[in-house]
Measured scan of single mutants.
Amino acid sequence: GFTKEQQRLGIPKDPRQWTETHVRDWVMWAVNEFSLKGVDFQKFCMNGAALCALGKDCFLELAPDFVGDILWEHLEILQKE
């Protein structure tokens, strides 16, 4: 899971503390893990605080249908851990 990747890359547990690099690493991991298609990494050029502050509607505009939902749900789980 993502926990191993977080440990390997030194990504903080709390997504709100992520840098732009951490956000990119997470999106890249999720794309590979969940076989997601059509993700534009440029749209995720922000730090974790900005990403978490978007709200669901704005977040879902960053990625194609269903893909955004998967990313959003995973981000929500990470914020609760």
Rank of each mutant, 00 (worst) to 15 (best):
G1S: 12
G1F: 14
G1T: 06
G1I: 10
G1L: 08
T3W: 12
T3C: 10
K4T: 10
E5S: 06
Q6H: 07
Q7W: 09
R8I: 08
G10D: 14
I11E: 02
I11F: 08
I11Y: 07
P12S: 06
P12Y: 08
K13M: 10
D14M: 04
P15R: 00
R16P: 03
R16Q: 13
R16F: 13
R16V: 11
Q17H: 09
Q17A: 14
W18S: 01
W18G: 00
E20C: 09
T21C: 10
T21S: 13
H22K: 00
H22Y: 03
V23C: 03
V23R: 02
V23I: 04
R24S: 08
D25G: 12
W26C: 03
V27F: 07
V27M: 12
M28W: 09
M28I: 14
W29P: 00
W29E: 03
A30E: 12
V31K: 08
N32C: 09
N32M: 09
E33S: 09
S35Y: 06
L36N: 02
L36I: 07
K37V: 13
V39N: 02
V39I: 11
D40T: 05
D40V: 07
F41H: 15
F41W: 10
F41E: 12
F41A: 13
K43F: 04
K43C: 07
F44C: 00
F44W: 08
C45F: 13
C45T: 13
C45R: 13
M46R: 04
M46F: 13
N47L: 01
N47Y: 02
G48T: 02
C52F: 05
C52L: 12
C52Q: 04
C52P: 01
L54I: 10
L54T: 05
L54D: 02
K56W: 02
K56M: 05
C58I: 10
C58F: 10
C58D: 15
C58G: 15
C58R: 14
F59H: 00
F59W: 05
F59T: 00
L60T: 14
L60S: 10
L60E: 09
E61V: 04
L62G: 04
A63R: 01
A63P: 00
A63L: 13
D65E: 14
V67N: 06
G68L: 03
G68V: 06
D69K: 11
I70H: 10
I70Y: 08
L71N: 09
L71S: 02
L71G: 01
L71W: 00
W72N: 02
W72G: 02
W72T: 00
E73W: 08
H74I: 03
H74A: 09
H74P: 02
I77S: 15
I77Q: 12
I77T: 14
L78Y: 04
L78S: 04
